[in-house]
Amino acid sequence: MKSAAFEYARASSLDEVCDWLRKDGDDAKLIAGGQSLVPMMAMRLTRPARLININEIDALKFITVEKDHARTGACTRQCVIARDGALANAVPLLKQALEWVGHVQTRNRGTVGGSLVHADPAAEMPLVAQILGAQMVLRSHTGTRTVAAAEFFEGPLTTATRADECLEEIRWPRWSEKRMGSAFTEISRRHGDFALVAAAAQIAVDENGSCTRVNFGLAGGGYIPMAFPKLAARLVGSKLEDDIVESVVNDAATEFDPGGDLHASPDYRRQLAAVLTTRMLRAAYENASNCK
């Protein structure tokens, strides 16, 4: 047995989870898909005293598409989210990003909520949450609160979730523009690995092809996945002419300030950041322009 010993409990409701977390939230860890947590436990990078299984709580598994946003339950599996047609229409970036997450076997088990709470700086779902400005609904014994992505991600593997809180659902804002497009890509050593650098963009255009709303972001090698709303705002009104894109993208790569490791130096990551962001801006623009 590779993991350190722990006590185990299977929760049947969110109330039960909150009650247990109130009693010993500091020593307990929630397990959803477990596709990141279990490897960390196997390597003993983490040794929770108590594991609370939330996989059997049906109330945490749902997808609903509403006027202003789509809502997904925290324990909805990645494979379920990836194949939901209505969700793909409402928030296309989610499905585009999930194609880069792990493999068939890990997506069958992994949850989008788990990816967000785990908050790996190179993971795809936190980047999507940052770009769209997703809202995380956190539940504890005292009630619920909603935290925006910009405040949710605090650092590598660190979020604003308190020890007595459980992620209940995620709200993904919808862009209501008629001509809207998005795109996601990444470079990793093998497909399915964490990204050396990931880039994504979402753009709305008017009937003349001028951008009316833009956001984009980067992950991998950084401290947390980042969106660049201020830089993106400079592209509003443009048709993504070469000079303005180059200027914005270079500023983003500098602000991203990636670190280096065995796999990629900071310079290489900065270059990837600029190249991939340019490609994704252009791809999102093209997808937006092709909307009828």
Binding site: S3, G34, Q35
Partner: peptide, 10 residues
């Protein structure tokens, strides 16, 4: 699924 990433109790 990967059976090394699940505990038997799950």
């Amino acid at each position: 699924v990967r059976s090394c990433l699940m505990f038997a109790v799950q």
